[in-house]
């Protein structure tokens, strides 16, 4: 019970961070906070956080961003699915190597998001939409360390 609450709380913080106002140039590279937090929990506790959690969290962020229902849900499900396939291997990697694995995972997610966005008629004219994936991958070691601290402190299992 308490573990679930802690996980939900971290997801809420991730959502909060993803709507935090940011100055214009940084906004382009806004990290994919929700994806980062979900990725950590999937790697750490795959029996607890899985596809369904990711899907529901994605739905909430769709409402938050006012986009089509299911858009982020699909993307989050894809990220978590890839990590479920990979987690047993990459858990043993050092953090910077995990970052390298995260880069294509997040990159694919941003690509899918771009396709879905272009279906509803707004397609950014640049390649800059991949920037959040890069920033998220770079942030991964820190997010990982922070959430590991949270996990140990509140004994989330």
């Amino acid at each position: 019970m308490r573990s679930s609450l802690v996980i939900i709380f971290t997801l809420l913080v991730a959502l909060l961070l993803s709507v935090m106002p940011m100055p214009e140039p940084f906004n382009l590279g806004r990290p994919m906070w929700l994806a980062l937090v979900l990725a950590y929990w999937v790697m750490a506790l795959p029996h607890r956080v899985g596809l369904l959690t990711a899907w529901l969290a994605g739905l909430v962020s769709d409402v938050l961003f006012g986009q089509l229902f299911g858009q982020h849900a699909l993307v989050m499900t894809l990220i978590v699915w890839q990590l479920l396939l990979l987690h047993q291997r990459i858990r043993r990697f050092p953090l910077w190597q995990q970052s390298l694995v995260m880069l294509p995972v997040f990159g694919i997610a941003q690509m899918v998001l771009l396709w879905l966005n272009s279906l509803s008629g707004n397609r950014p004219p640049t390649l800059l939409f991949l920037l959040p994936a890069l920033v998220s991958a770079i942030l991964w070691p820190w997010v990982h360390t922070l959430l590991q601290g949270v996990k140990r402190r509140f004994r989330v299992i």
Partner: peptide, 27 residues
Amino acid sequence: MRLIVLTVLSIALMVVDARFDALKPLR
């Protein structure tokens, strides 16, 4: 298996949301 179900569900939701007004109250 779960992935396929959830993917189909997301796509269905997107189509319904884009074409019909049924989801407006929920939203």
